[in-house]
Amino acid sequence: MTDTRPLTTASTAFLAAARAGLTELADPRKAPDMQRYMKSEMPFRGVASPERRVLCRRLFAEHPLSDVDSWRATVLSLWRDAEYREERYVAMDLSGDRRYARWQSPDLLPMYEELIVTGAWWDFVDEIASRRVGPLLRAHRDMVTPVMRRWATDPDLWRRRTSVICQLGSKEDTDTDLLTYCIEVNVGDRDFFIRKGIGWALRQFARTEPAWVRAFVDAHPTLSPLSRKEATKHL
Rank of each mutant, 00 (worst) to 15 (best):
D126S: 03
W103P: 03
L59E: 07
E86C: 04
Y37E: 11
L78V: 00
E209T: 08
R160P: 05
R190W: 00
E113I: 06
F205W: 15
D154K: 05
E127D: 11
G96M: 08
G188E: 13
V133R: 10
L76M: 12
L94F: 06
W212C: 06
S130P: 03
T174P: 11
S130Q: 14
M1H: 07
D154M: 04
E114A: 02
R149T: 00
L25H: 14
V90Q: 08
L65N: 08
D156Q: 09
T12R: 15
F60I: 00
A211L: 11
L235W: 15
K229N: 08
A139W: 01
T9F: 01
A129I: 03
T8V: 05
T222K: 13
F192G: 08
D191N: 14
E86N: 07
K30C: 03
T208P: 10
G119R: 04
D67F: 02
H140W: 08
T232F: 02
F193D: 07
R57M: 01
T12D: 13
E172K: 14
W200Y: 05
R85P: 00
D218A: 15
T162Y: 03
L76H: 05
E184N: 15
P64Y: 11
M38S: 10
H220D: 07
R57W: 01
E51F: 05
V125I: 09
V54M: 09
K233C: 04
S66L: 12
P106M: 03
H220M: 10
A206T: 12
P110K: 09
R203G: 08
V144P: 07
L223G: 13
R190S: 14
E83D: 13
Y181V: 01
L157R: 14
A139D: 14
T8H: 13
L157F: 03
T9P: 02
K196G: 04
I194V: 15
R214N: 10
W79L: 05
T176C: 06
A10T: 01
R88S: 06
R80A: 04
A139L: 05
A20P: 02
M34L: 11
V164F: 06
P221V: 04
V75H: 03
R5G: 12
E209N: 15
D3A: 14
A17E: 12
Y181S: 06
D27F: 09
T23K: 15
G199H: 12
